[in-house]
Design a protein around this nucleic acid. Sequence first.
DNA 1: AATGAATGAGCGTTCATTCAT
DNA 2: GATGAATGAACGCTCATTCAT
Lengths: 219, 219, 219, 219
Amino acid sequence: MTAENEGDLPDDGRSRRAQARRERARANILAAAVEVFSTSGYHQSSISDLHQAAGIARGTFYQYFESKNAVFLELMDELLVQLRSSVVGVDTRPGAPPVALQLYQTVRRILEAASQNRALTTILMREAVGLDEEVDRRLAEFYDSLHAWVVLALENGRASGLVRDGVDVEIAATCVIGSLRFVLERAWAQSDGGDADLDLDRMARAILDVTAFGLLARK
Amino acid sequence: MTAENEGDLPDDGRSRRAQARRERARANILAAAVEVFSTSGYHQSSISDLHQAAGIARGTFYQYFESKNAVFLELMDELLVQLRSSVVGVDTRPGAPPVALQLYQTVRRILEAASQNRALTTILMREAVGLDEEVDRRLAEFYDSLHAWVVLALENGRASGLVRDGVDVEIAATCVIGSLRFVLERAWAQSDGGDADLDLDRMARAILDVTAFGLLARK
Amino acid sequence: MTAENEGDLPDDGRSRRAQARRERARANILAAAVEVFSTSGYHQSSISDLHQAAGIARGTFYQYFESKNAVFLELMDELLVQLRSSVVGVDTRPGAPPVALQLYQTVRRILEAASQNRALTTILMREAVGLDEEVDRRLAEFYDSLHAWVVLALENGRASGLVRDGVDVEIAATCVIGSLRFVLERAWAQSDGGDADLDLDRMARAILDVTAFGLLARK
Amino acid sequence: MTAENEGDLPDDGRSRRAQARRERARANILAAAVEVFSTSGYHQSSISDLHQAAGIARGTFYQYFESKNAVFLELMDELLVQLRSSVVGVDTRPGAPPVALQLYQTVRRILEAASQNRALTTILMREAVGLDEEVDRRLAEFYDSLHAWVVLALENGRASGLVRDGVDVEIAATCVIGSLRFVLERAWAQSDGGDADLDLDRMARAILDVTAFGLLARK
DNA sequence: AATGAATGAGCGTTCATTCAT
DNA sequence: GATGAATGAACGCTCATTCAT
């Protein structure tokens, strides 16, 4: 009854191309939105800013997203997926790399994922909260899952004797995440355009050093 | 200091009373604003909400503040002063309380000051960033001064042998503040109305424990 | 606590004047709206048309009415009140004017009330239906009350032997109202600017003549 | 008559099929439009609603109609043709059915034609006016021709002594049409799903009864 | 002939700000 | 000083219409 049934292969190709066009148009809007949000801030950006930045008409914007918020939600989801995928379990099997190295690599991967999406991550850390229930929910979910992962890692470490006794695991996990987050936030706030890789290495090492060994000297 | 001083003596008394009235009116608006901001969120609040909550006319609002932002700036300043005053130097003179206790008390004071201004602190942590250059500047200033204080404390500790060698002081200080901030944020996000004092004690202890001794077991 | 309590009589006068101003502003908008609606038709009129015709700013319009519909509702209510008040019961007490005269006067009053609000009545007859549930409800209410009044009059007439036997009172009442309405509608549609009073007299007489005596000759 | 006739013979068959397809497509849109208009009301219906209801693409709609109004105009024309065809002259030749019966049948046919197109007739009576000059013109034309027919019938009746003397024929004709119209309107407004045929019979009889014999008792 | 993505004028509405009273 | 009516820029959003495919 539809065109596909009457036509032949070319029709299929046509709709596939149409689909691809749609994807490109969406991606274009999303990319423009990152630019706009990170330049002017989420709250200062209007839908006019978005469609102009994307080089499309006002009405076209609404063919792809129903609101500024929907755009943000999608961007956020993309980022959260990337960040989440940076976090993998610690391999404790014999022959696996040393735990310290694995942890370094995980922290490093998170920092790198964030850095590669710096504009978006900045918005996420600075403006995402309180925008919208859905945004809040997903963000809380993300932090919760991150927190749960750290808690699990600490408990495993405790079981294997790696983590010391008497640690308040819940709060310790929060400290780790809060440290990571704030270190990144400050680094970017002051960013002097230095060697970013060196910075990431330094951050990762320092965060792990502090949280692993603490600040006090041993007698 | 103001125009009122240029009048003659009778005016002085009158202007002093006027000054006091002005202060009361401002305070009234500020108090109403905290209420409104914490109920509806900063971005969702309009000047209409503010003047209505304060029980004054729309135009009257503008006689005391030039914008919603100016109100927020003032509230923020009040809070930052309180938070800053919670932080005092460590007394290392002989006979002073143990350093660990002093640090606990400082952390505790910060948490208490924040808790006593929970509504405002929440807005500060969640919505304040990106509003306005002035807000951003003062907030950055606050974090910078806090950071500088911790750095100084760590360097002093290092000098007296209390803090271990090889710590990246800059980043360590950031971790301490980030931990504190995020612990508070999560605690409030999940707040189950439990015993707040116990919570503050637990938080303060745990944060200090983690940052002081680290997470790893000693051989 | 409010200004009225601190001030004296002038305050009262001030608020009374303010009240009067408000009333004048509303009336101004309503009058402009009648003009606009009757010129361009309800559906073709936008809020822009209304505020421009009233000579006020767009935002000012919203201080008095929440929508185009609200304006229309108010206009319609005014008109319906006038039309309703044209309809009074028949006085059957001894010494009262002849029933025929009373009926003539009632029909005449309705036609006059409609004529004096011709623009509005036209909109009411032509465009009011289906705009809005509230409008529909009130209009139906009006026709229902008019219908009920005619039914009652017919039943009374029946009881006193004035109205003949075997009349389907419900439908007869509908015919009377429908006749009146359509006569008016056509008269205005063709209005050639002739003597309006003569027209009203002719209409009233003819409607009553047809409905009273019917069209057929008696044997 | 159209471009298709300029092709060669094979084209003729092709164009005839094409013509038929076109007709079917138009009919499909018209049918869907009746549905949409009667469900949501004319003013609330958008071209989007129409093309979606017709199961065609947005652009396709414009290949058949240039606007929502054009669709309505066509629907209205169909209806007016049906209504007009319900009205036939009174056969006064010897041996013809009694005039009263003929009139009953005419009124009955009108009511039936309207009932069979209830959705459309409702829109015609309630929303058609003021949409568009063309619509208004044709509607006025229809009422004019109906009116002229009644006037003619009355004048014939007058000539044959059937209609009484002294009737204001113009207004009387308007009363008849207005009665018919308003009786239908109210019947549908209150329609309780009763026996529609009985209703039509009752309406036709009552309208004729009132207009023929009037409401007053004879001495 | 059919499609549906793109368009942008225009809508209703909000709200920070001004200013006469 | 307090008021709140007036303002109009700017917003989010809709939708009739066009046009490349």
